[in-house]
Design a protein around this nucleic acid. Structure first.
Lengths: 213, 213
DNA sequence: TAGATTGTTAATCGATTAACAATC
DNA sequence: TAGATTGTTAATCGATTAACAATC
């Protein structure tokens, strides 16, 4: 009785967080016409050790070559495949305050394959208003939008106290990934992924570090 | 020959990152009139284990009480003192694109003690324009501004390729802490602290996690 | 008092780094 | 060939979790 091992190697979260940075750097190197890059150079550029770089890259389906290093193009291709960069990621944005507005108008995201397809807010004074190329929609419009099944990610940029309700609503509608821009901790079922971007907490961390010297 | 131990306990970065979250929660509890909170409840609310909570809180100058837990007010006070929340943190913002504009107009930061005192950009088409209550200044105005010695933090929200130059300029002017909103890795001397907020990388991480299920 | 909850020590877990044989 | 650089294993480091005596 043999076991067929379906080599779906699980990539640790710590590595996943760095892969996009290698991709960005590989793209840059390709643009500049650089053909080969060593783990030592990559490490220097990204603030890592060469050991970490080699460990990380061992997770993707791509091999370097002794004495030469990694092919920039090969690296870019393999990382893009691993991260699924070829396909657009469809996002909904909830919360049309200053931050939400900035995110919805940020061309950088669209250029990198993150397409915002709807902006929502619960404030009647804002609903119906134009923000860049979007017309702000009410919260009731979220569910039908998600129902189409094309939405990958919900971006939450509402006040702290509204965050959990918005998360619940998005999850109920079927969204499986949340980018949490609030200071709240979101309680979600196992099937849903959350990544936190907490600018205020980062500022506090920084303030502490600057002062304690 | 005795050694006098100056108990300046160094708080690990992992703990520092969580302290602001305890503070936010303690403030909320106080507002709601809650007097006592246990490590188990705090853990539940913040998505941690009670063990982690007790370990973390052991670093601040404040003790809980067996059977009752932590006094919400005492916790708030001690955390505020540890994090230096009483004093305003003075920030400069460099890069008046969508993101920079949003940050400069975000009242939440000011309310939490982070005062932006100047917005700068190298684009002559933007310099002199009004953004909220700010008039965008040119890059040459940064150095004299910092020279006054009151600036704690520089916030960098410029394109990837300009990030390092801006960091160098801010550091040369005397800034000791940088909030990096770009995808670039900043090379800085040991005396300077950097905290990264990389929204695009967070989006990529999330996209990967949503897809690999 | 009995029981709940802390503070702290020890055990576990995972991530990073070091080391080195394989190899181009 | 000699030397540089990879891929991978083993060692280290640090963070998280478990356990439990102290204690209110």
């Amino acid at each position: 009785m043999e076991k067929i091992e379906l080599e779906t190697v699980c990539i640790p979260v710590s590595v996943i967080r760095r892969l996009p940075r290698y991709l960005t750097e590989a793209q840059r190197l390709c643009q500049e016409g650089v053909e080969w890059v060593s783990s030592a150079i990559l490490a220097k550029t990204l603030g890592l050790t060469s050991s970490t770089v080699r460990q990380d890259l061992s997770y993707i389906d791509f091999k370097g070559i002794s004495k030469r290093g990694y092919s920039a193009i090969g690296l870019e291709t393999a990382l893009a495949r691993t991260l699924g960069v070829d396909r657009d990621v469809v996002c909904l944005l909830v919360g049309a305050g200053n931050l939400g507005r900035a995110l919805s108008m940020h061309e950088g995201f669209a250029r990198q394959g993150f397409k915002i397809v709807g902006v929502f807010d619960n404030n009647p004074a804002i609903v119906g208003k134009k923000i860049g190329r979007f017309t702000v929609q009410g919260m009731d419009d979220i569910a039908p939008h998600v129902a189409a099944g094309t939405v990958d990610i919900g971006i939450i940029s509402v006040p702290h106290d509204a965050a959990q309700d918005v998360a619940d609503l998005l999850i109920k509608a079927g969204v499986r990934g949340l980018l949490n821009m609030t200071t709240a901790h979101l309680q979600v079922p196992e099937t849903v992924s959350v990544v936190d971007v907490r600018i205020l907490l980062s500022l506090r961390e920084l303030a502490y570090r600057v002062r304690s010297r």
